[in-house]
Amino acid sequence: MSYSPALPLEGPSPVEGRERRDQRNDRWFRLGVMSCALFVLLALLGAALSMLWGAREAFGTFGWHFIWSSDWDPVQRKFGALVPIYGTLVTAAIAMIMAVPVSFGIAIFLTEIAPSWLRGSVSAAVELLAGIPSIIYGMWGLFVFVPFMASYVSPWLDEHVGPLPIIGKLFQGPPIGLGMLSAGIVLGIMVIPFIASVMREVFLTVPVQLKESAYAVGNTTWEVVWDVVLPYTRSAVVGGIFLGLGRALGETMAVTFVLGNAHLLSASLLEPGNSIAATIANEFTEADSSIYLSSLIALGFLLFVVTFIVLAIARLMLNRLARREGAST
């Protein structure tokens, strides 16, 4: 017992010794689990800093111009992020336009309409859809969905919607199937289960008394959903939508397969394009100069910052409902 001069001279009794040992172990255990928890904080911080470090050459060379420039020329070593940023935003927007109403419908169906024997199996199926790896969506997109778009949807859009004023510009293009619209739709299919399961969960938190009272005074199902359930869960529903948006912005494999990997800035959704994640995935192993590699990592950093903000908003909105839940019970 040389470690502690403060010990009583006659030595600890067995019980005291055990107490001290337990205390010491408790301290170490607490320290151990705490450092693991702090490691989680460190991981996020490390990811941000390491990417910023890797991107320093690109940011240093191009400055703010990097974000606004549409150049992407590996030979001349001129890089700008505008085309991938545009592609990311457009595909995510298409995905959200498609996914939000559908997810809302699924959540209503699963909480208010479906008979109870159907609810379990359908929500299980929706969750399975969420579990399928994105590369499977990508392959399906490339081999099945893109040919389908090319032979049926794109020509029809080009012919019938293309000549329309204003929105027509979005739908003019070659019937190749690859492009923003296909990528956006595949992304939409991917994020539907995420948004739907969040919405379903938050809809289930609405107190039954609230809903039953509304039904009791003669409201229809739709009125209960729109005037009782939705106002009660509004912030969490927005949170769920942002969670899906975060997914859509950062999704890599599914988009890489169907976007066409072309550095084009085109108004048409039928033209191939590029997104941040797809650019990195496609070109990373081909990057032959340090400024090229650094530009790709800079793209990754931009993606990280944007998704961080979106996901942070999502969490804050979701936590607001959780806090009220906690306060009311």
Binding site: V40, L41, A43, L44, G46, A47, S50, M51, W53, G54, L243, G246, R247, L249, G250, E251, T252, A277, I280, A281, I297, G300, L303, F304, T307, F308, L311, A312, A314, R315, N319
Partner: peptide
């Protein structure tokens, strides 16, 4: 909060992080 963000962060970002 940070863990929840990591949970839904794009996996490509993790790849770049470990690359660096």
């Amino acid at each position: 909060f940070v863990n929840d963000i990591l949970l839904s962060a794009p996996s490509i970002v993790i790849g770049l992080f470990i690359y660096e």
